[in-house]
Design a protein around this nucleic acid. Structure first.
Lengths: 147, 147
DNA sequence: TATTGTTATACTCTATAACTATA
DNA sequence: TATAGTTATAGAGTATAACAATA
């Protein structure tokens, strides 16, 4: 079943999990399209945000915070580094570790990407009032917390 | 960014789209785990539900209703057919077309899969009250409608 | 000529296991 | 012995393009 395009099949609308996945796929596709204009993948945006939030973390720490696989982290960081948006630096006390920072270009990209994310959010959730959007966010937050 | 395990990174919680995808991935993983006990993939469950809802549709019609790619539809139906859960029959008036039906085993599987989906839903949305779940469903439905 | 279903193929995303260098 | 990072590889899941049969 491929999600997020057109409208969801009637037969499955009653399932909250299905509807959730459908809407999520649409929001994800929207976000991907917006971020593509900045030459950014969704996963790269996520990692960029993490590094911006806590610069100097090791790859292991980024792995823990993102839930990404360590090997995937290597590939993602390679890509960010190849585009000059992040850099690995030697860790001050442990030569096995690499501390990860954003470059100036990477830092400049964060607010632009954040705006793109907000625009895609506005597009997807445009049919909801501000109050409804707050309610949705609160409910999702509640579900996410009991992981 | 791999979604749905542990708890979402603080830095991204403010984005409704991100949170949505996070929760959706968790619900999807939960559903996949439940359906695996019935030897069912999520995409197969979706298609099974579609066929149960409107038996005798052609593959093209299933493609339109599901949003799946035609080539993917072939593979999915092959798998359902190999497990004796669905069957292609000749179309009465157009020899190019195949009418798709569930077998008795396929029909018997639908309520069991539906129960599994309900259980996984209860697991994921367990922290919400019934009223909150209704609200969430209504809000998601509203978002989904304006595709 | 257009449509239905099919095949072969390729691409993206992610995970597993084995390796290295350091601790 | 254990940990951080890396590499090579494989597995889902999905999409693209070309094809045969039929309309």
């Amino acid at each position: 079943m491929s999600f997020g395009e057109g409208s969801p099949p009637e037969a499955l609308r009653e399932h909250p999990g299905f509807l959730l996945n459908w809407v999520a796929a649409r929001s994800r596709n929207e976000l991907a399209a917006r971020l593509a204009e900045l030459d950014l993948l969704v996963s790269h945006f996520g990692l960029l945000s993490l590094i911006a939030h806590e610069p100097g973390l090791t790859q292991q720490e980024l792995v823990q915070r993102s839930g990404q696989d360590p090997s995937t982290m290597v590939v993602t960081l390679d890509a960010l580094e190849a585009k000059g948006r992040a850099e690995r630096r030697p860790h001050p006390t442990d030569r096995r570790k690499r501390a990860v920072y954003l470059t100036a270009a990477g830092r400049a990209l964060v607010p632009r990407a954040r705006r793109a994310a907000e625009q895609s959010g506005a597009e997807v959730f445009g049919s909801l009032s501000a109050a409804e959007r707050d309610t949705l966010l609160a409910l999702l937050g509640k579900v996410a917390e009991q992981g």
